[in-house]
Design a binder for these strands. Sequence first.
DNA 1: TTATAAATGTTATATTATTACATAGTGTTA
DNA 2: TAACACTATGTAATAATATAACATTTATAA
Lengths: 136, 136
Amino acid sequence: MGISKIDKMHNLSKNQQIIFDLIDKSPEPLKAYTILYNVQKRGIKAPPQVYRALDKLVEMGKIHKIESRNAFIACHNSSCQVDKATAFSICEVCEKVTEISSTGLSKYLANFKDKDGMKYNKYNLEFFGLCKKCRT
Amino acid sequence: MGISKIDKMHNLSKNQQIIFDLIDKSPEPLKAYTILYNVQKRGIKAPPQVYRALDKLVEMGKIHKIESRNAFIACHNSSCQVDKATAFSICEVCEKVTEISSTGLSKYLANFKDKDGMKYNKYNLEFFGLCKKCRT
DNA sequence: TTATAAATGTTATATTATTACATAGTGTTA
DNA sequence: TAACACTATGTAATAATATAACATTTATAA
Ligand SMILES: [Zn+2]
Ligand SMILES: [Zn+2]
Ligand SMILES: [Zn+2]
Ligand SMILES: [Zn+2]
């Protein structure tokens, strides 16, 4: 009990699962201390517990950090297994964040080389604008 | 005295100029509190003075914030007058950061539209990898 | 089993950033 | 000039974000 078979397949520990579930259910990015407040009733009482789980979940590609917001969202892009190639759209009015899943974009960026011929192993892209709702 | 003609043309106030000069001279991104320690001898004594100047300089496009590092670099891209379209390469070993100035990349990203047809007015892209030095 | 690695619990602290309010300078215009 | 609005500055306090350090427990594997 506690951790089911399916959870084990996802390789999530108890704290990781609690924190992932919370982020996954949230319609908006969650900040570390918001997460902390929301999982204290489940026994997670201190920042390091939250940050450790977040770090692992990011490594696994289960969640992504929105750097410009210091907040985390669950990955809903099935092809996105690791934290290597991420792109997001962020509404500057309502703060809605959506993960962008564009083959064209990811191919373009994965193959991008700068002037020095530097090849990258990872990128993060954040677009800012107005979402549909906030545009009208 | 204190603020020269050329500085006025750049519309920098005293604190903005002091802080811009420091960042501009630095070979590496500077963090807000590193800046604070380095300008205390020049009369800037408290965090708000630093953050206010940083905010304005970012608005003007004179400096950029490297979101994944909470650090700031001077803009050396003459076509980059505002904080609207930024791309950087970051070495994960030595933490060297370079602003990428690629017409192809900026055109591609400026014209990128997601599935919902959302048009963006701003983006920030950070590439991670190994710089020339650290690769050998 | 024994060893190893991974995860957890806990306290304290470090780092990054903002609020709030008082004061001073700058430019515009009546 | 005087009045006004606007921008920038100075200062203290505090909020928000993140990590260090160390003890303990749990999971995995030899
Ligand atoms: Zn993803
Ligand atoms: Zn919106
Ligand atoms: Zn620039
Ligand atoms: Zn390097």
